[in-house]
Design a protein around this nucleic acid. Structure first.
Ligand SMILES: [Zn+2]
Ligand SMILES: [Zn+2]
Ligand SMILES: [Zn+2]
Ligand SMILES: [Zn+2]
Lengths: 137, 137
DNA sequence: TTAATATCTCTAGTCACTATAGATATTAGG
DNA sequence: CCTAATATCTATAGTGACTAGAGATATTAA
């Protein structure tokens, strides 16, 4: 049996976050010691490892909850799991594309600044005037 | 003089957001009509346009506040403004790089799923086991 | 046994808004 | 000028995914 601190160390999920996940019902409330402290088994270790990895990959809590529900039914088809992953891939790609548009503008803006006074600064001017931008961001 | 709704339409910043910015002291409290409604001049229109553009480029409120303070001193050198923009560019690039690592893993994960049952699903398996990942994300 | 460390619950704070409720102001049409 | 529709007002609470703190109790190591 693991204390919450040991579970935290093993998974890389901070102690308050584990308690938060319990509140959000992502992990079920574990057994307690005589003195009312949480005691975890390997089942919870695996579940939290799954959650941590999914969060690291950027999945939202709701999506993770769905995936956990799905994985509780091993004989069911996996189309839903795949759809969740593909939706998240699409969202990730869209975010990358948007950030790349921002990157292009920010590069133009910083390169255009030649370190003069504020009144001639291309950074300030560019922020005031979207017409100087190359794309729509 | 513009009502808050007109200012909202002209800038693309929603009405409650304008009031929120006033609370956060990003924009100063404007004049009021007889009936206590906000009335804005072109000064505030320009300031809010600046804020909107900076937000669209991903800058944080604190950074925008600094930039606004800087632009109130036209004769000062612009090194700080440039630094803020460059820091944000660096952060944006770092975020893109991280999202690209996630994209690579998510692609591997979705391509690896062949639509069988949950117990054989590569999506679920990959989320359970970071060792299947190619990079560290 | 005692001191250090870990854990407990509960509340509030973070960021940048967004939503709602109930009251008041303004505006356009008749 | 009157009324109905629309806009605005303040204040409070909710969002997502945690994080920080206070004050009390439990566990562990020397
Ligand atoms: Zn400059
Ligand atoms: Zn722009
Ligand atoms: Zn599958
Ligand atoms: Zn991984």
């Amino acid at each position: 049996m693991l204390s919450i601190g040991e579970l935290s160390t093993k998974t890389g999920v901070k102690v308050p976050t584990i308690r938060y996940y319990e509140q959000m019902k992502l992990v079920t409330a574990p057994e307690r010691s005589e003195g009312n402290q949480r005691r975890y088994s390997n089942v919870e270790l695996e579940r939290l490892t799954f959650i941590k990895h999914a969060r690291d990959l950027g999945l939202k809590i709701d999506a993770i909850r769905e995936l956990l529900d799905l994985s509780a039914h091993p004989e069911q088809p996996c189309a839903d799991a795949n759809r969740i992953a593909e939706d998240h891939l699409a969202a990730t790609r869209a975010r990358i594309a948007q950030l790349q548009r921002l990157e292009a503008e920010l590069m133009r803006i910083t390169v255009g600044c030649h370190g003069d006074s504020i009144k001639d600064c291309y950074v300030i001017e560019s922020l005031s005037n979207h017409n100087l931008c190359d794309n729509s961001h």
